[in-house]
Design a protein around this nucleic acid. Structure first.
Lengths: 152, 152
DNA sequence: TGAGGATAGATGCAAACGCATATATAACTA
DNA sequence: TAGTTATATATGCGTTTGCATCTATCCTCA
């Protein structure tokens, strides 16, 4: 009753713009000359791990990385083989693994991260001012929060 | 001078939240039981074509679909083989192709689109109200617009 | 305690991807 | 207008992805 009929269209428009912004920025980042050591997806994993104070489960990592479980499992495989990620069986649960960055992995993450963060900052501030960035962050956070409980 | 030192961090935070929101919603959409006829990526192409009044070039389509040019070329291939997309050589430029939906393609797009649009609307309105949706759309539009000229 | 079911992650396999490059046509230039 | 360069799309190939399924471990409850 309090929901005007026009909302669905607006909602779809908002999603479409979000998608467009995502696409535009991803292309921009992909075009950077920085992904020779680690691909953008690998960086995503290293970055996520870098923010975890303690070793993480694959399934937990998978909540933050948009990949299927098998794909992530193998991606971590490759990173482990390259010595960037440490993967050991969880002593408390023999089924699970505990993932963490190695020193080399942290170094690679930071090396790529510094430059990338600058690019991101430049890209975001090119279109939005301080207040707008805050609003965008808040809106996206709220949007995601409304669904974090939904999926497993 | 007018840019406070704190902005880079805010800018990166905004990007991270945008990314998180994108991921959360994509997972939600992927979990829908609707992608048996066309995959989400195929739908993206059909949807984009459905919004074009006239036949489109592959390169133009590629501006809206986040795929490499060869990947899109082959995706369109598959859609054409399935009779959903019409691909003909551009009479005005023998190198290029003109892409458009077939009647069947339009039907499939609409069939999938109706339900998907409802899901999107539900997902977006679950977290944000009318005003917030408008703000989000505007911010994303502005953000993307700041870069549309950048890349070819 | 031990059988049945649930959960975490790994693996087989076909499909799809990106990179490099080939092909075909157009556009420019001398 | 012939030769050169640029543009639009296609193709070869090795890598990565997702789906289905497997294995190993854990949990529950009779």
């Amino acid at each position: 009753m309090t929901t005007p009929r026009v909302m669905p269209a607006l909602a779809n428009e908002a999603w479409e713009q979000l998608l467009a912004a995502y696409g535009t920025l991803m292309r921009l980042y992909a075009a950077e000359d920085r992904w020779d050591e680690v691909s953008m997806r690998e960086y995503d994993v290293l970055y996520t791990l870098s923010k975890c104070p303690a070793p993480v489960r694959l399934s937990e990592l998978n909540r933050h990385v948009l990949l299927s479980q098998p794909a992530l499992s193998r991606l971590v495989d490759r990173l482990a083989e390259r010595g960037l990620v440490d993967r050991c069986t969880d002593p408390a649960d023999g089924r699970g693994v505990r993932l963490s960055l190695t020193a080399a992995g942290r170094a690679v993450q930071q090396r790529a991260g510094r430059g990338h963060a600058r690019t991101v900052a430049r890209a975001m501030t090119a279109g939005l001012n301080h207040d707008e960035l805050g609003q965008l962050a808040a809106l996206c956070r709220k949007l995601a929060a409304a669904h974090d409980k939904d999926l497993t």
